[in-house]
Design a protein around this nucleic acid. Structure first.
Length: 322
RNA sequence: GCCGCGGUAGCUCAGUUGGUAGAGCAGCGGACUGAAAAUCCGCGUGUCGCCAGUUCAAUUCUGGCCUGCGGCA
């Protein structure tokens, strides 16, 4: 059951300050600054920082930073696990509740749009999760008959979901059929108006495209200088592969190609930069339609003016000085 | 210097038996409720290296030139 535990049931008066934005926008630094001065705790909304051992490549906060400010939803899964939004939603809601009970301010910071939205709104993840046997069967069919054939089948049981899922999007089609097969109910029956669940202030950090791409390039180079190659080598030695969800993380799947000798380091690094830029663009596509966001020009830094400005917004919203 | 193969979209290349050209990647826009750093969709005019010739018509044929790579000297 997602979000069903008493500990995780949100109270509408629970406050949350969320900082969203593309990778390399400086949102983590701003969050540290804000949390430090407002007596806050950080709740990560990042689908890859949940995995232990993926540190440099996911730009995880340092041990020193995590010692200084409490962080949640980081290192909560083994890389061999398949973490999911539903689990995230449940755990993050519990964290928000607990932080509010302590009288502290939760600062949600993350680049995974779906995670942020699933936390802040009443997304319904009550249908059962994965059915691995059914999935592999459906994947096989998608491979042989093609995704449109599965889409046709979906249209018969859940026309609403079929209308919203493209005939070629095998992954989403499979999930919809999976829900139908395991519950007898259409996935679309869980869809509806999304209500916000918290007293939230949402800050979005944005950068010009040129600056965003430049910062990404610099950051990837910095990751390599910090030992990304060794980090990936270590994970590979432990038996983790790119077939895992965690193995699909940016910086990891590309670096494996260098470690197994199929590409040069230079080519691998260029591939990481390229796919990170692609990702940042997708993040912006998602975040642009997010409701109620106060957009600020980045990049952010821990001691910069954005921190003061955001604390001012928070003080005005909640009538208390931070 | 000679021989061979190239020079086409930002990049890698395909193609036009002569009627001015198309893929992948990049880029731009979008979708996305259990893998979401995933998955999927839409968008392609560029002196077809330069100059001249043949032709109704040349990026495509011919000649010259420039240039890259390989080989022989």
């Amino acid at each position: 059951m997602a979000g069903g535990t008493a500990a995780g049931t949100p109270s509408r008066s629970d406050r949350v300050l969320a900082i969203i934005g593309p990778t390399a926008s400086g949102k983590s630094a701003v969050a540290l600054g804000v949390a430090g001065r407002a007596g806050g705790e950080i709740v990560s909304a990042d689908s890859m920082q949940v995995y232990r051992g993926l540190d440099i490549g996911t730009a995880k906060p340092s041990p020193e930073e995590r010692h200084r400010i409490p962080h949640h939803l980081i290192d909560v899964a083994d890389p061999a696990e398949s973490f999911s939004v539903a689990t995230y939603q449940s755990l993050a809601r519990q964290a928000l509740r607990a932080i509010n009970c302590r009288g502290r301010l939760p600062v949600v910071v993350g680049g995974t749009g779906l995670y942020v939205r699933a936390l802040l709104y009443d997304y319904d993840f009550s249908p059962p999760g994965r059915d691995p046997a059914l999935r592999s069967e459906l994947e096989e069919q998608a491979g042989s008959a093609g995704p449109p054939a599965l889409h046709c089948r979906l249209r018969q049981v859940d026309p609403q979901a079929a209308a919203r899922i493209h005939p070629n999007d095998a992954r989403l089609i499979i999930r919809a059929i999976e829900v139908w097969e395991t519950t007898g109910k259409p996935l679309s029956s869980t869809w509806g108006f999304l209500e916000p669940l918290y007293d939230a202030l949402i800050i979005g950090l944005r950068l010009s495209r040129d600056e965003m791409y430049r910062r990404i390039d610099e950051r990837v180079d910095a990751m390599v200088a910090m030992g990304l190659v060794d980090e990936v080598r270590r994970l590979v030695a432990l038996g983790y592969t790119t077939a895992l969800v965690s193995g699909q993380a940016l910086g990891y799947k590309e670096m494996v190609g260098y470690l197994d000798g199929s590409t040069s380091l230079e080519v691998a690094v260029a591939a990481i930069k390229r796919s990170t830029r692609n990702y940042a663009k997708r993040q912006m596509t998602w975040f642009r339609r997010e409701q109620g966001v106060v957009w600020l020009d980045g990049p952010g830094s821990e001691g910069g003016p954005l921190v003061d400005y955001i604390l001012g917004l928070a003080a005005a919203k909640w009538g208390q000085s931070y």
